[in-house]
């Protein structure tokens, strides 16, 4: 029986790292610009579809990966430069709702460009695997976890240690003050959107390969990813990583409990809901806090 738990632990970590990866992308942008980007999944989906299209045209594979990253960056910076500034002084919820609009547009465009047919996005790392507790884990999955962990470490170092990181944090905290003390707002924000877009592109590639290459599937992955981000209170990168992994493991383990097995997909939302309740355990008044 222990062996079976091992199987599902590893499987859960593999899926959890996908939730974590996308959640981390959300949190990074949120910390550096104040936007919770619901269009993140749609950007990732577009990147994955572009990668497929470029490969389909016969390009060398690394070119298609580069195309995915560039698509992510382009879509993200496009929003960050053209649309986000108009909302800069609005409350966070309104900023988030505006990205829903961008999500709908991207979803519609993808529907127009690519009809529903069978597609596959293969990465060379899909074929190489190591065996862990009885489960074969492909290098692609290890990359997903590694990228998530590396993103956490690098972004913590970057946001906490570097000048640009400091600028980003101050900008997200209070745009007016940041502008007042001479932080180059446009430059900093563009960089933040670009980093987030590149992560979206990479996430899209991994999702397209590991989950399914369907625009709607990847687009709505943003909802469970948001659950992981909620575990990290939308600010903590390590907690988001842990949240994603825990969600993945719990979801996988539920497979073993027959009555709940078909409802496993509820896991991210139940955990996020419990997290939110726990976060406000000490509040006694019914007053809504600012956030």
């Amino acid at each position: 029986m222990l062996k079976v738990y091992g199987l599902f632990l590893v499987s859960g970590l593999a899926v959890g790292s996908l939730y974590a990866l996308a959640g981390i992308g959300l949190v990074i942008l949120r910390r550096s610009t104040g936007f919770l980007n619901f269009a993140y999944g749609a950007m990732a989906a577009a990147a994955a579809m572009v990668a497929w299209q470029v490969a389909e045209w016969g390009a060398w594979q690394p070119v298609s990966w580069l195309a995915a990253l560039l698509t992510g960056i382009a879509l993200s910076v496009l929003y960050g430069r053209l649309l986000a500034p108009a909302l800069a002084w609005r409350e966070p919820a309104v900023k988030a709702v505006a990205t829903l609009g961008y999500m709908l547009i991207l979803l519609g465009l993808m529907g127009l460009l690519w009809d529903d047919s069978l597609r596959k996005l293969s990465l060379p790392t899909d074929k190489i695997a190591v065996t862990l507790l009885g489960v074969r884990v492909t290098v692609t999955r290890i990359i997903a976890l590694a990228v998530a962990m590396a993103a956490v470490v690098i972004m913590i170092l970057y946001l906490d240690r570097s000048r640009m990181g400091l600028n980003m944090r101050s900008l997200a905290d209070n745009r007016d003050h940041a502008a007042l003390i001479g932080i180059p707002i446009v430059k900093v924000e563009t960089l933040a959107w670009g980093i987030s877009g590149a992560l979206a592109g990479g996430t899209g590639l991994l999702f397209g390969s590991l989950v399914r290459l369907e625009p709607t599937v990847i687009t709505f992955m943003v909802i469970p990813a948001t659950a992981a981000a909620i575990v990290g209170r939308l600010t903590s990168l390590p907690m988001t990583l842990v949240g994603g992994l825990v969600i993945g493991v719990v979801e996988a383990m539920l497979t073993l409990y027959k009555p709940l097995a078909p409802l496993r997909a509820m896991t991210p939302f139940v955990i996020a809901g419990l997290m939110i309740l726990w976060m406000q355990r000490s509040t006694t008044l019914t007053f809504a806090t600012k956030e």
Partner: peptide
């Protein structure tokens, strides 16, 4: 049985 939106196909296989 699994939810149509489920991403965790790995666990379905392992089940």
């Amino acid at each position: 049985l699994m939810d149509p939106t489920a991403v965790d196909l790995n666990s379905v296989y392992l089940q």
